[in-house]
Each structure stands twice: as structure tokens, then as C-alpha cells.
Amino acid sequence: MSLLALALESNPSDHARASTIFLSKSQTDVRDKRKSNHINHISHVSPGPMSKKYSSCSTIFIDDNTVSQPNLKSTIKCVTLAIYYHIKNRDSGRSLDIFDEKLHPLSREPVPDDYSRVDPEHKLIYRFVRTLFSAAQLTAECAIVTLVYLERLLTYAELDICPANWKRIVLGAILLASKVWDDQAVWNVDYCQILKDITVEDMNEMERHFLELLQFNINVPASVYAKYYFDLRQLADDNNLSFPLEPLNNQRAQKLEAISRLCEDKYKDLSQTAMRRSCSADNLIGIRRSNAVLS
């Protein structure tokens, strides 16, 4: 087998046998927490009844006190925790200008001077993703597909998700996942209504770059989806998080594969045409506008 074939088979977003990147990046922290908990347990003797057990990771218990789908909320917590470990345990700071928040801000508020040096807390990542999913009424399955696309981008383009680019990379992954998975695709202009200050032209440009970096490969095999699902369950267990979402059944698995392959073919057709800088794939995926966004 060639080195190229071996490299492709080691990509978790394409092959079910390859280990997910986020789970491996979380293991160092998990081992350290378990070691710390073990030391604290054997060094502390309490004469009374055992006290309530709390997670050693103080940033993962988030209660936004809103009426929401519990499965969706739990899934977003786990997916954003995976993103948190990607950022915290990144290999370097490899990025591209199109994802730099200083060069392409998402709001009119000034970007802090230390925006590229301070790692975001898990709750900040959660709130950013939760806002988008709530406003666009996206599903828990869409959150998992978002993580697949994110890891595919990092491996295909040899990038790192870091403090300077995490918001735009996550936004790009959500943008594609919502078009491929959800029945009512959210158009780029809808996300502009959610984020308010970002322009449609910027969204289209970012989408175009994201697709090109993915080599227009947006196919998500059911086996890959299942692997990400179970690795997220493992991440949840390691961090004392609830993750009640049921595994993908056969019918929905077939739907995911069929839709993602169809969309991939359409995107590839688009790549063979003259693609203007303002071009978007909104007209290719889902002809229905979503009414779910906040205006």
C-alpha cells in the first residue's frame, strides 16, 4: 500500500477504522484528572457519609436555563468540548487568512489584542455554537456532522484550530453541515441575520474556501458518523457529561449517505464552473428557505 493510501486511511473523517482526533487530544487531560482524583481520594479521609461527586473540569457544567431539546443540548456540549480539546492541545498555530477573526471579524466589536493567544473556555465555545443551533433550529445529528467536517478540514488542509480562527472554522463547518444534513437548509443570508454584522459576501467567500480545502468531499459514510457518535459518548463519560442521543438507525444512516453523496456531486459540478468570489452553494442544496432564524 502506498504512503498516500495509508495517509488517507488514517483520516478519521473518511474511514471508520481511524481514531478520531478529538478523542486522542483529550486523553492527556483525562489521564491527568484521573490521576489527580486518585491522589485526592487516597489522601483524604472523610468520617461522614460520602459527599456528592463533582466533575474535576469546572468549565463543562453549563445551565443556560432555556427550554431546549435535552439531546441537542447534551450533544452540543460534547461537540464543543471536543473543539475545546482541539484548541487546547493543538500541535501548532497553522491557519489561513480566510479564517482569521482579526482579518474577517464576525461583529463590529473590536477584536481584543490578545485574540490569538488566549484559549477560549469551553463555555464560550458552547454559547457560540448553541446560539447558531438555536436560532437556525439545527439538530443534534447536524452537530456531529459539523465535527466530522471540522476534523476533515484540519487533516486535508493541515491546519490547526486555535484562538485566532476557531469561530470562523466552526461557523464554516456548521454552514456546510446544516445544508447537507438538515431537511430545511439554512441559507448564508440567514446566518447573516443571526450574526448581524457579517456580510453575505464574506459568508460565501468562506464557504468557497472551506469547500476547496475539503476538496469538495462532503460525503459522510454512516460508519464514520457512528464512530464519531461513540467517541463523543466516550468523551462524555470521561468528563462526567450526559450524552443521551440514540445511535443513528438504518433509515437515517441511509439518508445521511444519500444526501451527502448527492450534495458532494453537486458541489463538484460547481467546482468545474467559473466560481465567482461571491458564489454560494445555497441554490444547490435545499430550495426551501428556513423560517427558523432570528430576525
Rank of each mutant, 00 (worst) to 15 (best):
I218P: 00
L154E: 07
T199A: 02
D113Q: 15
C279I: 02
L6G: 03
D29I: 04
T20L: 03
P110K: 12
G286R: 10
L8H: 10
A177W: 00
Y54R: 15
E201N: 00
S134D: 08
L248N: 05
S280T: 03
D114K: 07
L124G: 03
D238L: 09
A143N: 04
D182P: 03
D14M: 12
K73N: 15
S43Q: 13
R94P: 02
S26I: 00
A281K: 08
L262I: 09
N65M: 13
L235Q: 06
Y54M: 12
C263L: 09
L256Y: 01
Q193C: 07
Y84D: 01
D231V: 04
N249S: 05
D113L: 15
R276L: 13
A135W: 02
K102A: 15
I287M: 14
S36C: 14
A236L: 04
K53M: 08
Q137I: 01
L232W: 04
L6P: 04
D231S: 08
P105G: 04
E201W: 05
P247Y: 02
D231N: 11
S295T: 08
Y267V: 14
L256N: 12
M203I: 02
V30W: 03
V170N: 06
D182N: 15
E257R: 03
K167D: 01
S107H: 10
T155V: 13
D113I: 06
L256A: 10
T75P: 06
N219Q: 11
D113P: 05
